[in-house]
Design a protein around this nucleic acid. Structure first.
Lengths: 368, 368
DNA sequence: TTTGTTGCCGAAACCGGTTTCGAGTGTAAG
DNA sequence: CTTACACTCGAAACCGGTTTCGGCAACAAA
């Protein structure tokens, strides 16, 4: 052992990266052979393969992903572009979702590239950039739209993707989704069991695929219970606290107001809370609320919000697995996966304390 | 124009990417020349440079980032590794923070690679992987620790980074931080002005750099007000709602309980809320609470939480700018940036309604 | 005219990998 | 004892860029 070897083992941790050449030299082989051995080519003797593996490990060789990418065309990176203006709706889950995506990706040796933009046009732009620069091999698209320009662009460019949500209209593609419609249906049934017969619904934005599905769930819930559908009990385009508050005002000021309101998203439900409190109504007693999403604020709201919770981490995991499978095997059949939401029973729903007529009276004494 | 040209202009959008070779061929030059022209080398005639630029644009040429990386050593990607078990504290801001990072990166043609891990060891591992694979040129480290293994590893590997928070003990490096200590100082002053003289403090985990700073701010706030420091009024290691609740129980059960509590993090404050409500104390009246972070839940808590809010988006922006500057110029002087937190006055603080003695009585009637 | 410079660009090496091709073995079949 | 055929590996091209090197032309100085 001369001074040199001592030097290598000493403090200076890998001053310069170990390349495939270094490994090849150390084994008296060519780098091509090493590459094939490491990538399980059939024309390498088992014994050789093992030797190469061992030496590569010993030397701490890790292939530089970028260098592989240029030949293979795979950067082993999945893209996620987040639209900021709808971020309000996405923010609470983002962390969990990213954790799911990232760990699933990691497990296959992939990484996650995330970008944000504040408009849909911006999203399309950054998506294109990621594609052109080959920084992402495929995309996870959160919140599918009925007519989704992101999807159009990706199919056109022939770039793999998977949507979180049901597929856009007229498109066939991989997707993973949570059965929001079943949750809405179930929410109505639950309220009916409590004794409610006049049940309002806060629908989300028209262009989201999930919006129509959840509405259908609500409608079918009414039908299964033998309850009539009344269009005045449905408010559209309500996704924020503010909009929820306004929508609640509209529903509660009806001549025959609902004694319960089903909300497409938790934020809207919090808006209902605000309006109810202004009108002196007690949530869970005077007015029942059931919602969907499972945001953390719901737990601390007073009373705590009954809601159908979505496991975002699992969603992230499955979505990336599906995407990676798709990238590896571009002509497999479509992957479609639907999982149920989980009801979290808390305190915002229960038997109606009073009739619609009483509620109407209460409303008018509060505001006239 | 033969059939071929027609074909190229038709539907099939870029079936195959346009490379630098294509541009060179189209201009009757070598790819080397095109590359130098595009990268503003001095040995290219201005007129030629312009021609190349124009043709490259016309053809829609975008250099493949990964191919550049292998020669230049820059993937133009910044890494962010998030530790999940402390994600509870980070989650609410994550979206804003990512937006800041991503758009700042985008502006310079960089991208963001994010990964997660559930332990510090996991973080170190995935960090190493990103370095080995050259998927990240540098890192943003959220939440600096007093003794931070991530930093040790990065200095050792000579990989650029910037920390969100003050620098770890004994390290000199780039950082960006919000002056939590000033906020804590100010919180105490504010409470003193309200008439409080016995003020508790909920300190965060010992190993976070910010924890000690905020405590110092609290201590100095007391000093400026001429108030004595009492160690029994300080609870340590309280970062979650649960821990906040327990800590509040400890402080409020003192013989001379505080009439106000300053919290290092909002989640802890929400725990104080819970304990106060159990004890029949009204926050903002019987017990004042001022906190730090600005998480969204605080706005919906009852009463709404007075807190010092951190602009995470701006933090993300500045951090990436600093990091990119550092990567481009490795021997520039250290970048250090400290910005103030912004007070959001809400309803959780005010003049004390009763004395410490009264509070103690209230506490014991509630629980004995 | 000769000799330097300088400006500009082509040629070729290079980065760190992957993949194709073909040649040299050993072994089984004819 | 050939011949055919796997098996195994080296050699070299290739991926899409960047960077070094050197040569040619034009122009200035001698």
């Amino acid at each position: 052992m001369g001074e040199n070897t001592a030097d290598q083992n000493s403090l200076s941790k890998r001053p310069t990266k170990v390349t495939i050449q270094d490994v090849a030299r150390s084994l008296n082989m060519t780098k091509g052979t090493v590459s094939r051995a490491l990538n399980n080519y059939g024309d390498i003797a088992a014994e050789t393969r093992a030797r190469v593996r061992a030496e590569a490990d010993r030397m701490g060789y890790v292939p530089m992903a970028l260098a592989q990418a240029i030949r293979t065309g795979r950067a082993k990176s999945i893209g996620l572009v987040i639209q900021e203006d709808e971020l309000g709706g996405f923010a609470p889950f983002l962390a969990d979702f990213l954790a799911g995506v990232s760990t699933a990706a990691s497990k296959s040796g992939w990484t996650l590239t995330v970008a944000t933009a504040n408009t849909m046009d911006g999203v399309l732009e950054v998506q294109s950039r990621l594609i052109s620069e080959r920084k992402a091999d495929g995309f996870i698209l959160p919140r599918s739209r009925v007519s989704d320009p992101r999807v159009d662009k990706l199919v056109q460019a022939n770039v793999p993707f998977v949507v979180f949500g049901r597929e856009p209209k007229g498109i066939q593609c991989d997707w993973f989704d949570v059965a929001g419609e079943d949750a809405m249906h179930d929410a109505v049934s639950r309220l009916v069991k409590f004794g409610h017969s006049r049940i309002g619904f806060l629908k989300a934005g028209e262009d989201y695929v999930y919006s129509g599905l959840r509405e259908r769930g609500y409608v079918q819930g009414l039908a299964s219970a033998g309850l009539p559908f009344a269009s005045e009990l449905v408010a559209k385009d309500v996704m924020t606290l503010e909009q929820g508050s306004i929508a609640a005002r509209k529903l509660l000021s009806l001549e025959v107001p609902p004694t319960a309101i089903v909300c497409s998203v938790d934020r809207a439900a919090l808006g209902v809370y605000r309006t109810a409190s202004e009108a002196g109504m007690e949530i869970g007693k005077d007015l029942s609320v059931i919602s969907y999403d499972g945001i953390p604020e719901g737990e601390f709201a007073v009373p705590a919000l009954t809601t159908y919770s979505v496991n975002r981490r699992h969603a992230g995991t499955r979505l990336t697995q599906i995407l990676i499978d798709r990238i590896r095997n571009s002509d497999a059949e479509a992957f479609l996966e639907l999982v149920p939401a989980q009801l979290i029973e808390r305190a915002s729903d229960g038997p109606p304390r009073c009739s619609s007529a009483d509620l109407a009276k209460l409303w008018h004494t509060s505001f006239n």
